[in-house]
Amino acid sequence: MKYLRIIIIIVFIFSSYLYSLDTIALTIKVKGTVELNRDSNIKEIITGEELYNNDILESKKDSFAAIKFIDGSSIVKLFPNSILEIRTEKEGKQLNKNNFLKMGELWAKVTQHTGKFEVETPTTVVSVKGTTFLLSIDKNGETDLFTFSGEVLIKNKVDGESALVGEGKKAHSSGLGPIEVLDFNITDLDEEMREYIEEISNVLEIHLENPDGEKKEIIIEFE
Protein backbone atom coordinates (compact mmCIF):
# COMPACT_ATOMS: atom_id res chain seq x y z
CA MET A 1 0.00 0.00 0.00
CA LYS A 2 2.82 2.32 0.89
CA TYR A 3 4.51 1.66 -2.45
CA LEU A 4 1.27 2.21 -4.26
CA ARG A 5 0.95 5.63 -2.69
CA ILE A 6 4.50 6.51 -3.65
CA ILE A 7 3.87 5.35 -7.19
CA ILE A 8 0.66 7.39 -7.38
CA ILE A 9 2.46 10.47 -6.09
CA ILE A 10 5.31 10.01 -8.56
CA VAL A 11 2.90 9.49 -11.43
CA PHE A 12 0.92 12.55 -10.38
CA ILE A 13 4.01 14.74 -10.13
CA PHE A 14 5.32 13.43 -13.41
CA SER A 15 2.03 13.94 -15.19
CA SER A 16 1.72 17.45 -13.76
CA TYR A 17 5.19 18.18 -15.04
CA LEU A 18 4.28 16.85 -18.45
CA TYR A 19 1.13 18.94 -18.52
CA SER A 20 2.97 22.02 -17.38
CA LEU A 21 5.14 21.75 -20.48
CA ASP A 22 2.22 21.77 -22.85
CA THR A 23 1.88 25.00 -24.78
CA ILE A 24 -1.34 26.64 -23.68
CA ALA A 25 -1.03 30.14 -25.11
CA LEU A 26 0.99 32.25 -27.48
CA THR A 27 2.05 35.86 -27.46
CA ILE A 28 0.75 37.19 -30.72
CA LYS A 29 1.97 40.72 -30.17
CA VAL A 30 4.61 42.12 -27.84
CA LYS A 31 5.69 45.72 -27.63
CA GLY A 32 8.41 47.07 -25.38
CA THR A 33 9.77 45.01 -22.53
CA VAL A 34 7.75 42.04 -21.38
CA GLU A 35 9.41 39.50 -19.10
CA LEU A 36 8.54 35.86 -18.74
CA ASN A 37 9.11 34.21 -15.41
CA ARG A 38 9.14 30.44 -15.87
CA ASP A 39 10.22 28.39 -12.87
CA SER A 40 12.02 31.48 -11.53
CA ASN A 41 14.00 31.86 -14.75
CA ILE A 42 13.32 35.28 -16.15
CA LYS A 43 13.75 36.24 -19.79
CA GLU A 44 12.52 38.95 -22.10
CA ILE A 45 10.08 37.71 -24.70
CA ILE A 46 8.97 38.71 -28.17
CA THR A 47 6.01 37.99 -30.39
CA GLY A 48 5.49 34.27 -30.94
CA GLU A 49 6.55 33.07 -27.50
CA GLU A 50 4.85 29.86 -26.42
CA LEU A 51 3.45 30.05 -22.93
CA TYR A 52 3.07 27.19 -20.50
CA ASN A 53 0.93 26.70 -17.47
CA ASN A 54 2.05 28.78 -14.47
CA ASP A 55 4.15 31.13 -16.60
CA ILE A 56 4.18 34.66 -15.22
CA LEU A 57 4.27 37.63 -17.57
CA GLU A 58 5.34 41.06 -16.42
CA SER A 59 4.98 44.03 -18.72
CA LYS A 60 7.23 46.96 -17.99
CA LYS A 61 6.61 50.67 -18.52
CA ASP A 62 5.15 51.53 -21.97
CA SER A 63 5.05 47.83 -22.80
CA PHE A 64 2.28 45.59 -23.91
CA ALA A 65 1.52 41.97 -24.73
CA ALA A 66 -1.40 40.31 -26.49
CA ILE A 67 -1.96 36.64 -25.72
CA LYS A 68 -4.11 34.09 -27.42
CA PHE A 69 -5.07 30.80 -25.79
CA ILE A 70 -4.73 27.58 -27.76
CA ASP A 71 -8.43 26.85 -27.81
CA GLY A 72 -8.82 30.07 -29.80
CA SER A 73 -11.42 31.23 -27.32
CA SER A 74 -9.91 34.34 -25.93
CA ILE A 75 -7.52 37.18 -26.41
CA VAL A 76 -5.94 38.91 -23.45
CA LYS A 77 -4.13 42.21 -23.72
CA LEU A 78 -1.80 42.93 -20.86
CA PHE A 79 -1.24 46.63 -20.30
CA PRO A 80 1.95 48.32 -19.07
CA ASN A 81 3.19 47.66 -15.55
CA SER A 82 1.08 44.55 -15.12
CA ILE A 83 1.75 41.04 -13.87
CA LEU A 84 -0.28 38.07 -15.07
CA GLU A 85 0.09 34.43 -14.17
CA ILE A 86 -1.20 32.06 -16.84
CA ARG A 87 -3.18 29.31 -15.20
CA THR A 88 -5.20 26.78 -17.12
CA GLU A 89 -6.64 23.35 -16.66
CA LYS A 90 -7.59 20.92 -19.35
CA GLU A 91 -10.99 19.36 -18.88
CA GLY A 92 -11.85 16.93 -21.65
CA LYS A 93 -11.61 18.87 -24.87
CA GLN A 94 -11.90 22.20 -23.12
CA LEU A 95 -9.34 24.50 -21.63
CA ASN A 96 -10.47 26.21 -18.46
CA LYS A 97 -8.64 29.46 -17.84
CA ASN A 98 -8.14 30.84 -14.37
CA ASN A 99 -5.48 33.48 -14.83
CA PHE A 100 -4.21 35.52 -11.96
CA LEU A 101 -3.76 39.26 -12.41
CA LYS A 102 -1.47 40.26 -9.62
CA MET A 103 -1.32 43.92 -10.57
CA GLY A 104 -2.02 46.29 -13.42
CA GLU A 105 -4.64 46.05 -16.12
CA LEU A 106 -5.80 43.61 -18.67
CA TRP A 107 -8.41 43.69 -21.41
CA ALA A 108 -9.99 40.46 -22.54
CA LYS A 109 -12.26 39.33 -25.32
CA VAL A 110 -13.81 35.95 -24.69
CA THR A 111 -15.99 34.02 -27.10
CA GLN A 112 -18.90 31.87 -26.03
CA HIS A 113 -19.16 28.10 -25.86
CA THR A 114 -15.56 27.55 -24.78
CA GLY A 115 -13.98 26.52 -21.53
CA LYS A 116 -14.35 28.61 -18.41
CA PHE A 117 -12.65 31.98 -18.39
CA GLU A 118 -11.88 33.49 -15.03
CA VAL A 119 -9.46 36.12 -13.90
CA GLU A 120 -8.48 36.18 -10.31
CA THR A 121 -7.13 39.28 -8.64
CA PRO A 122 -5.75 39.62 -5.12
CA THR A 123 -9.26 40.37 -3.89
CA THR A 124 -11.80 39.18 -6.45
CA VAL A 125 -12.61 36.62 -9.09
CA VAL A 126 -14.32 37.60 -12.30
CA SER A 127 -15.84 34.98 -14.56
CA VAL A 128 -17.20 35.52 -18.01
CA LYS A 129 -18.93 33.86 -20.91
CA GLY A 130 -18.63 35.60 -24.20
CA THR A 131 -17.71 39.15 -23.39
CA THR A 132 -15.23 41.96 -23.65
CA PHE A 133 -13.99 43.63 -20.51
CA LEU A 134 -11.20 45.55 -18.86
CA LEU A 135 -9.88 44.69 -15.43
CA SER A 136 -7.72 47.00 -13.39
CA ILE A 137 -5.97 46.38 -10.08
CA ASP A 138 -4.61 49.25 -8.05
CA LYS A 139 -1.73 49.19 -5.63
CA ASN A 140 -4.06 48.21 -2.79
CA GLY A 141 -5.39 45.26 -4.74
CA GLU A 142 -8.75 46.93 -5.28
CA THR A 143 -10.43 45.94 -8.52
CA ASP A 144 -12.12 48.02 -11.20
CA LEU A 145 -14.03 46.19 -13.89
CA PHE A 146 -15.39 47.74 -17.09
CA THR A 147 -17.68 45.62 -19.25
CA PHE A 148 -17.79 46.56 -22.93
CA SER A 149 -20.04 43.73 -24.10
CA GLY A 150 -21.78 40.74 -22.55
CA GLU A 151 -21.87 40.19 -18.81
CA VAL A 152 -19.18 39.60 -16.23
CA LEU A 153 -19.69 38.12 -12.80
CA ILE A 154 -17.38 39.67 -10.21
CA LYS A 155 -17.08 38.05 -6.82
CA ASN A 156 -15.17 38.98 -3.70
CA LYS A 157 -12.83 36.25 -2.54
CA VAL A 158 -13.36 36.91 1.15
CA ASP A 159 -17.07 37.41 1.72
CA GLY A 160 -18.44 35.98 -1.53
CA GLU A 161 -20.27 39.22 -2.35
CA SER A 162 -20.97 39.27 -6.07
CA ALA A 163 -22.39 41.44 -8.81
CA LEU A 164 -23.30 40.87 -12.40
CA VAL A 165 -21.81 43.68 -14.44
CA GLY A 166 -23.55 44.20 -17.75
CA GLU A 167 -22.56 46.02 -20.89
CA GLY A 168 -21.67 49.66 -20.32
CA LYS A 169 -21.31 49.15 -16.57
CA LYS A 170 -18.30 49.39 -14.34
CA ALA A 171 -17.77 47.82 -10.96
CA HIS A 172 -15.43 48.65 -8.12
CA SER A 173 -14.54 46.20 -5.39
CA SER A 174 -12.23 46.62 -2.46
CA GLY A 175 -12.43 42.87 -1.97
CA LEU A 176 -14.71 43.12 1.00
CA GLY A 177 -18.25 44.40 1.24
CA PRO A 178 -20.62 45.62 -1.41
CA ILE A 179 -19.48 45.88 -5.01
CA GLU A 180 -20.38 49.18 -6.58
CA VAL A 181 -21.84 49.04 -10.07
CA LEU A 182 -22.25 52.21 -12.11
CA ASP A 183 -22.60 53.28 -15.69
CA PHE A 184 -19.42 54.28 -17.45
CA ASN A 185 -18.33 55.73 -20.72
CA ILE A 186 -15.09 55.54 -22.55
CA THR A 187 -13.91 58.82 -21.10
CA ASP A 188 -13.68 57.18 -17.69
CA LEU A 189 -10.64 55.37 -18.97
CA ASP A 190 -7.42 57.24 -19.22
CA GLU A 191 -6.04 58.06 -22.61
CA GLU A 192 -3.29 55.48 -22.52
CA MET A 193 -5.76 52.70 -21.77
CA ARG A 194 -8.00 53.79 -24.59
CA GLU A 195 -5.07 53.64 -26.95
CA TYR A 196 -4.24 50.13 -25.91
CA ILE A 197 -7.83 49.06 -26.45
CA GLU A 198 -7.59 50.81 -29.80
CA GLU A 199 -10.45 53.05 -28.87
CA ILE A 200 -8.45 56.10 -29.65
CA SER A 201 -11.16 58.14 -31.25
CA ASN A 202 -12.18 61.13 -29.20
CA VAL A 203 -15.58 61.09 -30.77
CA LEU A 204 -18.19 59.08 -28.93
CA GLU A 205 -21.13 58.16 -31.09
CA ILE A 206 -24.38 57.08 -29.49
CA HIS A 207 -27.03 55.64 -31.73
CA LEU A 208 -30.56 55.87 -30.43
CA GLU A 209 -33.60 54.18 -31.80
CA ASN A 210 -37.09 54.29 -30.38
CA PRO A 211 -39.57 51.43 -30.65
CA ASP A 212 -40.98 53.03 -33.77
CA GLY A 213 -37.62 52.77 -35.45
CA GLU A 214 -36.88 56.46 -35.46
CA LYS A 215 -33.17 57.02 -35.22
CA LYS A 216 -31.03 59.75 -33.74
CA GLU A 217 -27.30 59.96 -33.54
CA ILE A 218 -25.57 61.82 -30.74
CA ILE A 219 -21.97 62.62 -31.39
CA ILE A 220 -19.99 63.71 -28.38
CA GLU A 221 -16.55 65.04 -28.91
CA PHE A 222 -14.45 64.95 -25.79
CA GLU A 223 -11.00 66.07 -24.89
Binding site: I28, T47, G48, A66, I70, I75, L95
Partner: peptide, 23 residues
Protein backbone atom coordinates in the same frame (compact mmCIF):
# COMPACT_ATOMS: atom_id res chain seq x y z
CA UNK B 1 -7.19 26.75 -34.79
CA UNK B 2 -5.11 29.50 -36.25
CA UNK B 3 -3.74 31.68 -33.49
CA UNK B 4 -1.37 33.71 -35.60
CA UNK B 5 -1.37 35.73 -37.74
CA UNK B 6 -4.53 37.28 -36.36
CA UNK B 7 -5.94 39.85 -38.76
CA UNK B 8 -7.48 41.67 -35.80
CA UNK B 9 -4.22 42.15 -33.96
CA UNK B 10 -1.19 41.44 -36.06
CA UNK B 11 0.51 43.79 -38.42
CA UNK B 12 1.28 41.52 -41.32
CA UNK B 13 4.73 42.38 -42.57
CA UNK B 14 7.23 40.39 -44.58
CA UNK B 15 8.10 38.52 -41.39
CA UNK B 16 5.21 36.92 -39.59
CA UNK B 17 4.48 33.91 -37.48
CA UNK B 18 2.14 31.10 -38.40
CA UNK B 19 0.94 29.47 -35.18
CA UNK B 20 -1.67 26.76 -35.37
CA UNK B 21 -3.21 25.27 -32.26
CA UNK B 22 -3.49 21.47 -32.24
CA UNK B 23 -5.15 21.53 -28.86
Amino acid sequence: VRLSPDPELSDITEDFIIAISLF
